[in-house]
Amino acid sequence: MLEIKKLRKNFGKKEVLKGIDITIKDGEIIGIIGPSGCGKSTFLRSINMLEKPTSGEIILDDNVIDEKDNLNDLRRHIGMVFQQFNLFNNMTVLDNITLAPVKQKLMKKDEAKKEAIKLLKKIDLEDKKDNYPRELSGGQRQRIAIIRALLMKPEIMLFDEPTSALDPEMIGEVTALMREIAKDGMTMLIVSHEMSFIKSFCTRVIFMDEGKIIEEGTSEDIFDHPKDSRVKTFLSKVKNI
């Protein structure tokens, strides 16, 4: 269970997050939507402290995440997938996947390799294990980034616009993999502009604007019966596109 209490974040004088409170239960799939600049990415990146919160608490299974104390420990339990994939350019696919589990002594090297190849097989990219990221398509890279995060055996996975940098024909392979992972009961937080995917996939949807949560509810609540005018305006604009 992930609890976020009174989360605030300032960039200089600008307040980007103005107090976020939310509790996420295990197995929930949360979609976070909202106009650009509303703070949804910052919110997501604050959870594993890639952005250091100005104030507030993040509590994972009763442990308050503290930068000095247990941050690296808790980051193990929170996987993250980035818009730009961020595979390590200087490593082969296999090394990308096994680096962290081996260096953090979660697995022995052989074991990590075996597990990595198993995962690669699952996504049909076993033959690419010795390739470098630059030799792969965007969709392939993002799927590898996802299984790289998976091998750490996280409890929660954060997806920061995972399909925004992809060509349209590659979006499907990435969302399909995400659906696959959800089947095993993974807790997920997804920031995305793929409205149809969010609507069909997420168990709960949060609408953010100006650093605050404006409205939350089931997919149907938000997409079909929005209450706040800002949500209505946003959805009408998105649908027009």
């Binding site: 594993n48 980035f82 961020n86 390590f88 962290a100």
Partner: peptide, 9 residues
């Protein structure tokens, strides 16, 4: 960031 997110120091 990808490294940090994977709990590397």
């Amino acid at each position: 960031e990808a490294g940090y997110a994977l709990s590397l120091n």
